[in-house]
Nucleic acid binder design. Sequence first.
DNA 1: TAAGCTTAACGTATTTTATACGCTAAGTTT
DNA 2: AAACTTAGCGTATAAAATACGTTAAGCTTA
Lengths: 243, 243
Amino acid sequence: MKLNPHISVDCVIFGFDGEKLKILLLKRNISEDGNPVSSVDYKLPGNFISDEEDLNTAANRVLKDLTGLENIYLKQFKVFGKPDRVSKEKDLKWLHDTTGLPIRRVVTVAYYSLIEINRSKIELTGNNKAEWVSIEEARELAFDHNDILNAGLSTLRTKLQFEPVGMELLPEKFTLRQLQTLYEIILSRKLDNRNFRKKVLKVNYLTAMNEKEKDVAHKPAQLYSFNKELYLNNFIQFEGFQF
Amino acid sequence: MKLNPHISVDCVIFGFDGEKLKILLLKRNISEDGNPVSSVDYKLPGNFISDEEDLNTAANRVLKDLTGLENIYLKQFKVFGKPDRVSKEKDLKWLHDTTGLPIRRVVTVAYYSLIEINRSKIELTGNNKAEWVSIEEARELAFDHNDILNAGLSTLRTKLQFEPVGMELLPEKFTLRQLQTLYEIILSRKLDNRNFRKKVLKVNYLTAMNEKEKDVAHKPAQLYSFNKELYLNNFIQFEGFQF
DNA sequence: TAAGCTTAACGTATTTTATACGCTAAGTTT
DNA sequence: AAACTTAGCGTATAAAATACGTTAAGCTTA
């Protein structure tokens, strides 16, 4: 029996809660026959794509179905396509086909997405329960999803050096401290706050709001917002903060 | 009738002849019924992949079948997958399937490759004739191959800024002048030769040979080679020349 | 209410890196 | 031997990255 190749889209969805970098995973608590499973299983959100669907459309659909959000930062970053992808027996139960056949080979187009964690209304019902998991805890994923996650994380780190993508993970109004903490966490190192501030304020696409931080036990900081249009207009090839 | 998605691998193969940046294209001179065609048609080398084949393996196979070369710089850079990819009637004749059906949708995993132009023994026979075409002349490609080519070129330019990939396009022994010319052509601007030399000689992965240029009508230059192992060992995340 | 704590916010000195440009050397061609 | 061409070394200046000092503004607590 010859099986056709199937194309799926998987998304590494990043979020930031102010302290940790997180990713949105699907947790399988209950096996298909209704019995509880002993081992906890996570997988990246994803789906097979239909013949008529554009890849980017499919990725956006996965994101919308899960979070309810649209027009979100979402970029393709790699394709995974080993034919022996499904090697472990237990992984087979994750795989469905419209024909009901098990799938021996899947080509996965991997996307990474940056979303503001509080805007997402994640789906808590159903068999696949969505959950924000911090990077350190996100190990032991199904299939080759660990590889995909690591590749996505590496892409995010690299991207951050050359394009101001950090703002996508923050609320519309944010302080420079929040931005710096985010950079520090993604890059895994401390940054000098005075130099960070200098570099960041040199660009013109950060607009100071007429507003300050509230309910903090110290001097409240100025709030800023990211002017995406202004950034895109001045964008030549690369622009961002290099640390 | 429901058609299954098909996955193909297309390669943007770059070469450098000392003066121009070129890409390896397949030229179709004769139509399928044997009559000459009026319009010249080019396409990128590529192939459909079988169910059992790894994507990278498939790309390497395309490269080897065409040039006879193995272990060549070859990197995946983007996936193209609009369902309406085949829109023009004339493009249909390029598409085959093992079943003989026309293909309505193809997902293409695009690779770019850097090869030393003189090492390739390209296949000059057969219906699809391979030809090195300079970038400026490479217009009017079949399907969405123009998009793929442009994306590949953009990837190469960006990559060059951060990793020393230029050497892949040069012979094993090369002069700094050759290297500079290559950089100038890919980046489309003149570089100061004294500063270029300073920056390039600071790295440790360029080894001076005990040999000089020959048969030139001026002072012969020192020959260098690229020590790939040394580069990869010292490689942290990015290293290269930024101009 | 004053002292102490925390983070915001501004500034300066130093080092490193990038850029601009002058000049001599070693070959070939005429 | 003079003219020509590219190789190859150096220095002076500008720009960017880094290190670090200091005051300000609000909150908490004694």
